[in-house]
Amino acid sequence: MNRNLITGAVLSGIFVAAALISFVWTPFDHSTLNIANKLKPPSGAHLLGTDHFGRDILSMIMVGARTSIAVAFVAVGIGMGVGVPLGLWAAARNGTWLDELIMRGNDLVFAFPSLVIAILITAIFGAGAVNAIIAIGIFNIPVFARITRGAALSLWQREFILAARVAGKSAARISGEHILPNVANLLIVQGTIQFSLGILAEAGLSYVGLGAQPPTPSWGRMLADAQTLVSIAPHMALVPGFAIIFTVLGLNLMGDGLRDLLDPRLRVARV
């Protein structure tokens, strides 16, 4: 029915499944060091090879998927949880100082790239996965606020909202009852996109040491470890790299597919 959606769902589904399975089973213990067995290329024993400490890379990828997915998921949750109500509120009070304040606040947050937020948080609390979540989450807030407000504003012009106002409903109730359901599709699509960006951002933060700390495995840190060894053990860089690419690609394809599926204009065309 929708090729993008299916390909995307399968791709990202694989990594979600890997993350879930890792709670009960991994081929090897991801933290067991075995120096004698280090830097082995992929083989029957270690499907994706071993790293410079002799750890099984497949196991690390599976456990690392947990970190990536959890960080990105919670960060999207923060972005939506704060950004969507803000956007709805700003749209309901369009043209007032409140709208202006929310939107200026948004612009201000936009001026802080997530990496810079992460740097500031690290300066206070030190590095860690939670910081990465907060940094990426904060960065997501204006994204959702802006997109919600934009869509809500055009809905507020529609006559069915006027009809609801004539029926005496409050702005809050209209936002919940009429606006939110009609922007939900947009938010789902944007959510998958931010989710994929979150995975990229988490990898970047872990790579520079601002994300998950050892011994928690993460794809970004695996790449940081691989960097000096890239010429002798390229699989150490290739495997986590492809893990990131496939997950992000899967999520983006899913986002495209969902947009095609949920876009009311396209649906009308199909009917």
């Binding site: 529609r158 006559e159 069915f160 006027l162």
Partner: peptide, 22 residues
């Protein structure tokens, strides 16, 4: 004033935009 609004209703122009599609 809700008591007044009850006595007054409206029909808008756009037959496509005046209903929540959901």
């Amino acid at each position: 004033n809700l008591a007044v609004r009850r006595k007054m209703q409206v029909v808008f122009q756009d037959p496509f935009g005046s209903f929540n599609p959901r």
